[in-house]
Design a protein around this nucleic acid. Structure first.
Lengths: 213, 213
DNA sequence: TATATTATAGAACAGGTGTTCGTGATGTTT
DNA sequence: AAACATCACGAACACCTGTTCTATAATATA
């Protein structure tokens, strides 16, 4: 995947502008005129290169059969993040176990900008119930963006699944000798201690979204 | 604008699916086949109705010249929110005055989902500098979503422009007799009092976005 | 220098595609 | 019943459009 030629960059730019402006892709002769290219075959030639480089996908024999795969700069590109459900909390409340966390099967999703997920895989969202993380500036009703990981650094906020209790909770995780301390970020609340066998890290907090009002 | 006929709803749904799937609109004959319609002229007829009802815009004599205006359910629709700049703070820091807050001229934008702006007009974003709103769970470095308004309810968080000082700050606003109290949401900080003539509401907080890590 | 490889031109073909027209069915209003 | 608007059908037309072919130039590779 090398750089694009000047002409190819012009074509991609033109397609982008055309689509966002008109709502449908340009024809080859539209591109020809719009980019000042002398022949339709040259357009065809460069479109094939753009397809091989993954910028577009062409549909053979279909008029305007161009699909933009890599959209330019500020477009409406969004990342659909599944909202798995609600997480505790003062007291942990039951959420679906790790096996049933099937991201694909979740009905509710929210769109966030790629800036928030920063290209990470395995990102999901949870509604926060309760005020156990108030000192971490996470309030009841906030939505936390989570990344699916199995381990976290000491002191990181994570969604933790307690095998025995069959409950999930949002806490700061500290690994101590012989035990794991789950620390609410709320000075009013006491930490919870669990055996290492009993805790399963579901993900770590990578962002917070709050709607005021 | 009455309801759509069953057939028209089917057409709209088909176009939606087609576009999000293939990246370009269907031809009339695609719609004909996809919706089980007997004649192209019937499709044409209903497309004209859909256009008159504002669901699509058609481009005459152009193949696949259909632009979806009202998109269905879950698409990647995003709202580009201009990031105006940084706002104070412990102590107010200068930001562009009200006249120069030209939303169109701002280079930096961030994309947020419509769920966050909830269709409101005049939404912009500010980076928060300082910890004056820590008790409102807004931390240094957070991004606040603002709505451009001129007045706020008592106690609402708002961006306030101080005419005399030529400074802007993020505070809770309380209108008191003869003066306006600007209250930081931080128990360590004292309120700031200003004459009503001196304060100009720039907008109110409608959301908070935080990136952890 | 000789030889691929890449890029450009122009033209023509065949099928795709929006449009239009005449006709008729169906439903609503007078 | 008559008149009218709405909706549907099928066919045909003319242009749009992707594709392909041949020829040529420019650049890289040996």
């Amino acid at each position: 995947m090398k750089k694009l030629s000047d002409k190819q960059r012009r074509i991609i730019g033109y397609i982008n502008r055309f689509v966002s402006d008109r709502g449908y892709p340009p024809s080859i002769r539209d591109i020809q005129a719009g980019c000042g290219i002398s022949s339709t075959s040259v357009v065809d030639y460069n479109l094939n290169i753009l397809e091989s480089k993954g910028h577009i996908r062409r549909h053979a024999e279909v008029s305007r059969g161009i699909k933009l795969l890599i959209k330019e700069k500020e477009n409406d590109q969004m990342v659909a993040v599944p909202v798995i459900g609600t997480i505790a909390a003062g007291e942990p409340i039951p959420v679906p176990g790790p096996d049933t966390w099937d991201v694909a099967a979740v009905s509710e999703t929210m769109n966030v900008s790629p800036e928030l997920t920063r290209g990470r895989d395995g990102v999901y969202a949870l509604r926060v119930k309760g005020v156990s993380m108030i000192d971490a500036l996470i309030n009841d009703g906030d939505i936390v963006l989570m990344q699916q990981v199995n381990t976290v650094e000491n002191g990181e906020m994570a969604a933790v699944w307690l095998r025995a209790e069959k409950e999930a909770t949002l806490k700061k995780v500290y690994v101590e000798p012989e035990r794991v301390r789950l620390q609410p970020a709320n000075s009013q609340m006491k930490p919870f201690y669990a055996s290492p066998d009993n805790v399963e890290i579901q993900g770590r907090v990578i962002g917070v979204i709050r709607q005021v009002n």
